[in-house]
């Protein structure tokens, strides 16, 4: 019905968060303050990692929105959602609360997994570099 609206809303929030984090990272760079996060010293910035989540959420929501247009659940005229037009708001909200929230949670959980793995790889690389420096 309108489950894609939940990850779509999350995408808006994470995009704003990414912009704020990026701004802070740039300010820190200008002030020459080194980040305490070891993975950020040698690896990918946190704003870039948030970008992965944004791409999954925006891409997924856009393609799901297309599917809803295909099935006639989203219409090009006000109120844009067939469920609202036909007075099935309760059912729509219920679907958003179950399938929509699960979609957003699953995508975020996969992203958290990606961040944990990339942090672990970067940390190991940093430790190897430190060990190499000590040996040299």
């Amino acid at each position: 019905m309108a489950c894609f609206l939940v990850p779509g809303t999350e995408a808006i929030v994470t995009t704003i968060v990414t912009a704020v984090v990026k701004h802070k990272e740039n300010n820190l760079k200008k002030a020459n303050v080194e980040s305490k996060d070891i993975s950020e010293k040698i690896g990918t910035k946190f704003s870039t990692k948030l970008g992965w989540l944004n791409k999954m959420l925006w891409g997924g929501s856009a393609l799901l929105a297309f599917e809803h247009i295909w099935h006639g659940e989203v219409i090009p005229v006000f109120p844009f959602l067939t469920a609202v037009k036909e007075g099935e708001v309760g059912g729509m909200l219920s679907e958003m609360g179950t399938a929509g929230v699960t979609m957003a949670v699953l995508v975020t959980a996969v992203w958290i997994g990606m961040v944990i793995v990339s942090n672990a790889i970067e940390k190991r690389q940093a430790e190897n570099e430190n060990t190499g420096e000590v040996k040299a």
Partner: peptide, 20 residues
């Protein structure tokens, strides 16, 4: 990478749809 993440995002969302 952007293309892959977009498709993975959509796949995860459709997986949830399929489970329901």
């Amino acid at each position: 990478g952007t293309l892959a993440l977009m498709y993975w995002g959509a796949s995860l969302m459709w997986l949830v749809d399929a489970i329901f």
